[in-house]
């Protein structure tokens, strides 16, 4: 598979992920009863699912740089710093049933989503960052557009949002540690 095909596959996953995030936020806002049912269904699975998202995002990121030889820009590196640890600590926490991982994961994903938001903003409107392109590796460069829309920063944004949403939905019961 070439880079555009991999981007299509990851873009399909990102579309699904974006629908999950929007669905969870929407349910919480307009259908609290359904949201509580969803919370019950996802109880105890937050770290597992968020960890899976982080692992897929990490593997996708590594494939684009090591497989497709796209050079990560500066903002990509900062997002990697936030995402890669999540791919390790969340599966470990899920394996050990260590639910106190949530605040640490929230901080990492929060930093990631903030950087990713800025990256998406300058990618959509390059004039916000500077008037020209750095010859070496500008962050405004769109390497791929999976399904005609999903650039790498957009997929990263959804990944961070999904990690936060899945961990937020899986809130521990008050009597849990």
């Amino acid at each position: 598979m070439d880079a555009s095909q991999v981007a299509d596959v990851l873009g399909t996953l990102a579309t699904f992920g974006a629908l999950v995030v929007v669905g969870l936020v929407g349910l919480r806002a307009v259908a609290p009863a359904t949201f509580r049912w969803m919370q019950g269904m996802l109880a105890g699975t937050g770290a597992t699912l968020a960890g899976a998202v982080a692992v897929v995002a990490t593997l996708g990121s590594l494939w684009f740089s090591e497989g497709a030889h796209f050079t990560p820009c500066e903002l990509c590196w900062y997002q990697r710093i936030a995402m890669y640890p999540l791919a390790v600590i969340l599966p470990m926490a899920a394996w050990r049933g260590y639910r106190a991982i949530r605040p640490y994961a929230f901080v990492l994903a929060g930093i990631g989503i903030a950087i990713s938001s800025w990256h998406n903003l300058i990618e959509t409107n390059p004039d916000l960052s500077s008037g020209g392109c750095d010859p070496n590796n500008p962050c405004t460069l769109r390497w791929v557009e999976g399904l005609g829309f999903w650039t790498i920063p957009r997929m990263a944004l959804v990944s961070f949002a999904l990690v936060i949403a899945l961990l937020a939905v899986d809130r521990p019961h008050p009597e849990e540690p």
């Binding site: 598979m1 070439d2 555009s4 095909q5 991999v6 981007a7 299509d8 596959v9 990851l10 873009g11 399909t12 996953l13 699904f16 269904m41 996802l42 109880a43 105890g44 699975t45 597992t48 699912l49 899976a52 399904l147």
Partner: peptide, 28 residues
């Protein structure tokens, strides 16, 4: 229950990946 839900979610994700692969191969 948790295991069953995880299998259910994993199944949905696998279906999404298959759809993605089909879309990718179709548009190549």
């Amino acid at each position: 229950d948790r295991r069953r839900n995880l299998f259910l979610i994993a199944g949905v994700v696998v279906v999404v990946v298959i759809i993605g692969v089909l879309v990718a191969l179709g548009g190549a």
